[in-house]
Design a protein around this nucleic acid. Sequence first.
DNA 1: CGGATGCTTGACGGATTTCAACCATAGTGG
DNA 2: CCACTATGGTTGAAATCCGTCAAGCATCCG
Lengths: 228, 228
Amino acid sequence: MLMQNAQTLSPTHPAKPVDRWAAEQNGAGTAGLDALGVRMAFARNAEIFGEGEPTSYVYKVVAGAARTYKVLDDGRRQISSFYLPGEVFGLEATETHHCSAEAVTRSVLLVIKRSALVSHAEAEHRTAHMLWALTARELQQVRTHMLVLIRSAQERVACFLLEMADRMGVTDQIELPMSRQDIADYLGLTIETISRTLTQLEGTGAIAVPTCRRILLRDRKALKRLHA
Amino acid sequence: MLMQNAQTLSPTHPAKPVDRWAAEQNGAGTAGLDALGVRMAFARNAEIFGEGEPTSYVYKVVAGAARTYKVLDDGRRQISSFYLPGEVFGLEATETHHCSAEAVTRSVLLVIKRSALVSHAEAEHRTAHMLWALTARELQQVRTHMLVLIRSAQERVACFLLEMADRMGVTDQIELPMSRQDIADYLGLTIETISRTLTQLEGTGAIAVPTCRRILLRDRKALKRLHA
DNA sequence: CGGATGCTTGACGGATTTCAACCATAGTGG
DNA sequence: CCACTATGGTTGAAATCCGTCAAGCATCCG
């Protein structure tokens, strides 16, 4: 459940301005959410919610990163999405979650009661439109990700790096919050292929990998060429 | 544009009861849409809308089938979804479509003005919830489809056959509206692999393929075993 | 009948997975 | 402080699966 690996920080703590930028990035004006939620900290790999659990809360990343995923019977895991600071996840139109969520690193999340949002949406159509827009934006991102999944390993990794840089608002250096296994499960590849592809891209001079979590984009054009 | 390959049938024609079942299948109570729309016929492979075009209309399949897709720079096409009778597509929260749509076979669609829906949603929160629920349902289906895309060819084809049978409301025999190329682009495979996999499944007795568009599910358990 | 289209089948090669060993880093306890 | 272990990452070799290229077949329609 929610409280297990989490620790409440400050109820109704006002949003810091740093959220503003990311909220606008999100494109659905989620800044209004900030006053409604409670901040909580989650340990690395802590469960945020499980598949099938009631959708009691909606989450917004304040710091750190989260992942949503499903697992197949054979144990393989597909990560649907990563969520970076300013991004919202866990919002469903149904009563239960249809995927699970975990903290990628130690993270701070804004936790908002879903019922408050839903009832507010019944009175204020702009709130209703925000909920719809948030879900629609996720749909668009997942559809875009499907396009990535049908490509070659090199192209998938290049797309991933560009996507992360874009969403983190940087251009030439990214600090990955997630492991190679996470990347593999997001891109539908194995960790060995991820590793090999990164060294391969490093060999062509497209990127540099000073430490395994830090990646420099040395030749964005070469990456974009793979991005299609 | 919309009218090019289409032919108006009867404005504000009342919905036939056959839609009712499929609408309930859709799970979002879209039966209320039926009175708002106009029926139009589309030829096989006719464009319904294109990527980037304004989202002026929402569509509900009355007869036939539709597909939504994106194309990569290299010409590869990824079909996001097929839509069967009773299902709704083309609904976006944004002002432009982010994928294209075509008729798979000669089809009849109910065409509904989006602006009517959106303004109705501002007054009636149940309509707003329906729009949200429709988008959320699509999100769920696309996420499920992502799970299919990371699997082996045999598993993908088995999943596809079971999904189609389920959505068409049948158990042991399906009449596919789409070509091998469509299936390939939906599953992220080539037509050759689709063909080979079908003959392979036929060899193990899981299915039978009397004609290339008609498929009998002879051993659902074997297929389900691949379905995970 | 002949051409077009769509489907099937075969042979081959390449890309990715699998299996395995090895390396780097960080944390632990003697 | 230094083994020692655990975890995560890299690298190599072999096997497998799927894509590519090519040919052949069936069906439809003029």
